[in-house]
């Protein structure tokens, strides 16, 4: 039996939630005040995911950097792999919102897309 302590992110209450796990299965969830808290805790202990946002360098653009995000959430454990993979990327201006700057980042099957337009330098 493994107990995990979480803070719910559903509202400013920030309920302290305890999840009891056994062999990778949720046995018990306690400490939540509403349904959102329980759902959050179950997801967070079995399959925690995050959208990752960062920047990549731009060549020949009006701005030196362009902001990017993973098009979907990726496993929490892959956040640093994703950031590391993007550090090596430079995109060529012009860039439009939604352009794929790196596909299948860190083997997640998720693409990284631009979140800002950068025009080419004249």
């Amino acid at each position: 039996m493994e107990k995990r302590q979480l803070t719910c992110i559903g509202c400013p209450m920030g309920c302290p939630i305890t999840v009891t796990m056994e062999a990778g299965e949720v046995r018990e969830v306690t400490g939540f005040t509403c349904k959102r808290g329980e759902a959050y805790a179950r997801k967070e202990v079995t399959n925690p995911t995050r959208i990752v946002t960062t920047t990549v360098r731009v060549a020949g653009g009006l701005a030196p950097m362009v902001s990017v995000k993973t098009a979907q959430d990726i496993p929490k454990g892959k956040i640093f792999d994703c950031a590391d993979a993007l550090r090596a990327v430079t995109v060529k201006a012009p860039v439009s919102i939604g352009d794929v700057v790196l596909s299948n980042v860190a083997g997640t099957g998720v693409d990284v897309v631009a979140t800002k337009a950068v025009a080419a330098a004249q």
């Binding site: 946002t53 902001s67 979140t115 337009a117």
Partner: peptide, 25 residues
């Protein structure tokens, strides 16, 4: 918004989670 590259903007206005630059755009 141009420097707020994280997501979480626009849930009320557009019913989706945008980054700052996307919301501004």
């Amino acid at each position: 918004l141009n420097q707020c590259i994280h997501n979480g903007f626009g849930l009320h206005t557009f019913q989706e989670e945008l980054t700052g630059p996307e919301y501004a755009a």
